[in-house]
């Protein structure tokens, strides 16, 4: 939105960073790297990139700034990056949104017009309910849905969260209404006041309520238990074969020079090991999940194929 002001802020942040550039970083071909996100300032995707940018700058040897480009459910931001020169100066912060928007809305530039460069985190999704409510476990919620009718909430109409609930509904064969909202906050209200049996969200956005003891976690939608929440069973352990991976990574315009790819592939694992960065992302339960250029491209293709077949099965797209 405001490139110039963000550059200023980025420079100040880089100057405040307490540690010094590492060797090899001087080779990076451009001075300023812009990370583009479709998230609005302060939203999950935006905070992820801003935190990352503080540590990436020294690791890559360039100034890293974040630019928010809203609009078009993310399509505008993708188009902007896809049309940029592939010289290592402009990147896109990926989340499942860019795949959903591409499949649902078929904009001119979709996820396939970018090169998925590296993955950084998986952001675990969890099922939760109101602490004052009648449900103690996922099985309680499922029993209600099996015997009568369940009411489950997802933050957005066509999203990974919605898909995970629809999958849970279809593998268990229960009768549940999946209600979509205008974002996580809107849904949280309906969980807290008991309108919904349970909702699905990321730990980071639930933290406030979780610490205050207002909500109870029911199960994790990850393949393995979440570190730091070792008592929380996964949905798979409860007997329902559903697990999703919300990814947060970086994509680039196609045709990036190999040395830029190499610089990123070297920088991300190093940044993830940085104890100061760990101190920021570990409390949010973000799971470091570095994937290099080749692995990430395969991962995104696989993710898109799964999403496409889900959307076709449910008749959302043809």
């Amino acid at each position: 939105m405001t490139r110039r002001t963000l550059v200023a802020a980025g420079l100040t942040l880089a100057a405040l960073c307490p540690f010094v550039t590492v060797a090899g970083a001087q080779d990076y071909p451009v001075k300023t790297i812009t990370l583009v996100t479709h998230s609005s300032p302060g939203a999950g995707g935006d905070i992820f990139l801003r935190d990352l940018s503080r540590f990436l700058g020294p690791a890559l040897g360039a100034n890293v700034v974040v630019e928010n480009i809203s609009g078009g459910s993310g399509a505008t931001a993708v188009a902007r990056v896809a049309n940029s020169r592939p010289d290592g100066s402009v990147f896109y912060g990926t989340t499942p949104t860019f795949i959903y928007t591409t499949l649902l809305s078929e904009p001119e530039f979709g996820y396939d017009s970018l090169d998925p460069l590296v993955n950084v985190f998986f952001d675990p999704e969890v099922l939760y309910t109101a602490a004052t409510g009648p449900f103690q476990s996922l099985e309680d919620v499922m029993t209600k849905a099996r015997e009568g009718r369940g009411q489950w909430g997802a933050a957005n109409p066509a999203s990974l969260e919605r898909q995970s609930l629809e999958m849970l509904k279809s593998v268990s064969g229960v009768n549940a209404a999946v209600v979509s909202h205008d974002g996580g906050g809107d849904m949280m209200i309906n969980v807290l006041n008991g309108t919904l049996d349970m909702g699905v969200g990321e730990i980071q956005e639930l933290k406030g309520q979780l610490e205050a003891g207002e909500i109870r976690l029911l199960a994790a939608l990850t393949a393995d238990r979440i570190p730091g929440y070792d008592d929380l069973p996964t949905v798979r352990e409860a007997g329902y074969d559903v697990a999703v991976r919300k990814f947060r990574g970086i994509a680039a315009p196609k045709g990036l020079p190999p040395e830029v790819v190499a610089a990123w592939e070297a920088a991300i694992p190093r940044v993830l090991e940085d104890p100061e960065f760990k101190a920021i992302y570990e409390p949010d339960s973000l799971q470091p999940a570095f994937l290099d250029d080749e692995e990430y491209s395969q991962f995104i293709d696989g993710f898109a194929a799964d999403t496409r077949s889900f959307l076709i099965e449910t008749g959302v797209i043809q």
Partner: peptide
């Protein structure tokens, strides 16, 4: 824009600027 329940596109005429 995007339908609040199903996420379908409504009256966007293929223009991504109208999705929101």
């Amino acid at each position: 824009g995007t339908d609040p329940v199903s996420g379908a596109n409504r009256f966007t005429f293929g223009n991504s600027d109208l999705l929101n």
